[in-house]
């Protein structure tokens, strides 16, 4: 399994190189001039020229490319074209916020989605099942920013349980937890909707298998049949969906971050895009690619933990 992990990480290198090249090209194809964005409409041609030189945009494109690629591997990701701070510092400053939000919503989503999906499958075509299915459909079709605003109105403005503008304060534990709670619930509920649906259909499949009948014929209690015999077999599709959704979540959290005024990768990338901050965009893309590769690897390793028939070679 260690060798498998090492090999998978090694295979990630060409992926990373390809993505970096594409990012490098793409950000430069996008119309707009960073110098212009930084200095504004009224800037003189002279000032623009000086700015471009300072940003290194006057140099030949291949030189910029080589410098970028070399930098990524030596830890020098360049300076943000807008703030002038090192790109890596900018990213690492917000990364913990994104990671904690992602993990918290994953936990909430699984804690709600897996039992609810199993429950729904056990009561197939009864009113519990219909209610759960309608609920999860609602969760899937609800835009994250709308639910975020509703949560904010209900729990922060009406009930005053949570701060309206959390800003991601983390001085004390309670401050940290309170500022994380609503955004995590918002994304967690959407995730729960996904997980409920997959768990339900996958549990329906495994509950109908012959080995469940065998377990019942042995006199195994229902609770053990559901959680030990059926659930473990039903988990593979759930893990797949969670893995895919985690990748999406890291980018999709931007609207939640804006509504709750939280720092995060999503907000950073939208800002960088608006300001044509090439270097920051490039750095962010590298991080995204890396995260996706790691999430996929973790998904594959989890398969092996669940199903002994999965072999790594």
């Amino acid at each position: 399994m260690l060798r498998f992990t090492a090999r998978r990480l090694l295979f990630a290198v060409p992926t990373l190189l390809a993505v970096m090249t594409m990012v490098f090209v793409l950000v430069r194809i996008v119309p707009g001039d960073p110098a212009q964005t930084i200095l504004g409409d009224q800037a003189s041609a002279e000032a623009l020229q000086i700015m471009r030189e300072r940003l290194g945009l006057d140099r030949p494109i291949w030189e910029q490319y080589l410098e970028f690629m070399g930098g990524v591997f030596t830890g020098d990701w360049g300076q943000s074209m807008v703030t002038g701070k090192p790109v890596l510092d900018e990213i690492l400053r917000v990364l913990p916020y994104t990671v904690e939000l992602t993990i918290a919503s994953l936990v909430i989503g699984s804690l709600i989605g897996i039992p609810l999906g199993a429950w729904s499958a056990l009561h197939r075509n009864q009113w519990i099942d219909y209610l759960t299915r309608v609920g999860s459909l609602l969760g899937l079709s609800f835009p994250a920013f709308v639910s975020a605003i509703l949560l904010l109105i209900a729990f922060s403005i009406q009930l005053r349980w949570f701060p309206v503008i959390s800003g991601g304060g983390r001085a004390t534990f309670s401050e940290w937890a309170l500022s994380l709670a609503l955004p995590a619930i918002n994304l967690g509920l959407i995730m729960a909707a996904y997980i409920t649906r997959v768990t339900r259909s996958s549990m329906l499949g495994s509950l109908g298998e012959d080995y469940i009948r065998t377990a019942r014929a042995k006199g195994v209690p229902m609770r053990v049949i559901v959680w030990r015999h059926a659930m473990r077999n039903a988990l593979i599709p759930v893990v797949t969906v969670v893995g895919l959704y985690l990748g999406i979540l890291i980018g999709n959290s931007v609207l939640t971050e804006i509504v709750f005024n939280r720092p995060g990768l999503g907000k950073l990338i939208v800002g960088a895009l608006g300001q044509r901050d090439y270097t920051l965009l490039q750095g962010l893309m590298v991080i995204y690619t890396f995260v996706i590769v790691v999430v996929n690897l973790m998904t594959d390793l989890t398969y092996g933990l669940i199903d002994p028939r999965v072999k790594y070679q």
């Binding site: 080995y211 065998t214 030990r228 473990r232 077999n233 002994p308 028939r309």
Partner: peptide
């Protein structure tokens, strides 16, 4: 009870 299909009657993950 003993079932017909030994290939599917045992739980693959236990």
């Amino acid at each position: 009870m003993i079932f017909q299909e030994p290939m599917t009657s045992l739980n693959p993950v236990l």
